[in-house]
């Protein structure tokens, strides 16, 4: 599903350059649950952003579902964001001005879905995540764990093929973190959604079926 071939990323610094990723080769199959681990500054977040099409590599080839992503137009990338990719962020990044329900609904609005279908999809997700009672609350009225739950619900509602999660439990305490990780596990095994997460925690990594270690911009 994801194939990286000699991917590099560097930023210009003075007369030289600061290499964040160096010649990364990597492939992830459909249905995998992959954890990317490594020390701070090793380039793991950058790798995730490149896979999630939020950032472009400086060099190398990237095939997403066999499509060469580096040749895709802006429009095609937007299409992929709408239909195939979901994001979960460490800081949740819910829209403060929208309620739980409206936050979850937003991705569907960008897919131009009919109102009736939107309603049923959001209702399903609320139901599944057991947050029906909270649907009219605003993000700042929820605990961190609940916010992240909404974040995941929002990532799932558009039924993506893959979810990229950037330290999804970084701001949560351990019991909340465990719930979130169990949820990921369930999504992976039951729904067959590919999951790629960046994490610092060995425990979190055990929920996945593969660990990729990164140090100094290289897969080790």
């Amino acid at each position: 599903m994801i194939q990286l071939h000699r991917i590099s990323k560097y930023y210009p610094v003075g007369f030289g350059k600061n290499e964040v990723l160096k010649d990364v080769d990597l492939s992830i199959q459909e249905g995998e649950f992959v954890s990317i681990m490594g020390p701070s500054g090793s380039g793991k977040s950058t790798l995730l952003h490149i896979m999630g099409l939020l950032e472009e590599p400086s060099a190398g080839e990237y095939l997403f579902q066999y499509d060469p992503v580096h040749k895709l137009s802006e429009k095609k990338r937007t299409e992929l964001h709408r239909n195939s990719i979901g994001f979960v962020f460490q800081a949740y990044h819910l829209i403060d001005e929208l309620t739980v329900y409206e936050n979850i609904e937003t991705p569907l609005l960008y897919k131009n879905m009919s109102s009736a279908e939107r309603k049923s999809r959001v209702a399903d997700i609320l139901d599944r995540f057991n947050i029906v009672a909270k649907k009219d609350l605003f993000p700042n009225q929820l605990s961190g764990g609940q916010q992240q739950l909404v974040g995941i619900a929002r990532a799932l509602v558009a039924e993506p093929r893959v979810i990229f999660a950037d330290e999804p439990t970084g701001n949560l305490h351990s019991s909340q973190a465990k719930e979130i990780m169990e949820l990921f596990k369930e999504l992976n095994t039951k729904d067959g959604i590919t999951i790629v997460q960046v994490t610092h925690s060995d425990i979190n990594a055990t929920f996945g079926n593969r660990v990729i270690n990164i140090a100094d911009g290289k897969v080790v």
Partner: peptide, 10 residues
């Protein structure tokens, strides 16, 4: 940022 990551165009 969030809206863009969900597929909002410029």
């Amino acid at each position: 940022g969030v809206r863009k990551s969900m597929g909002a165009t410029k």
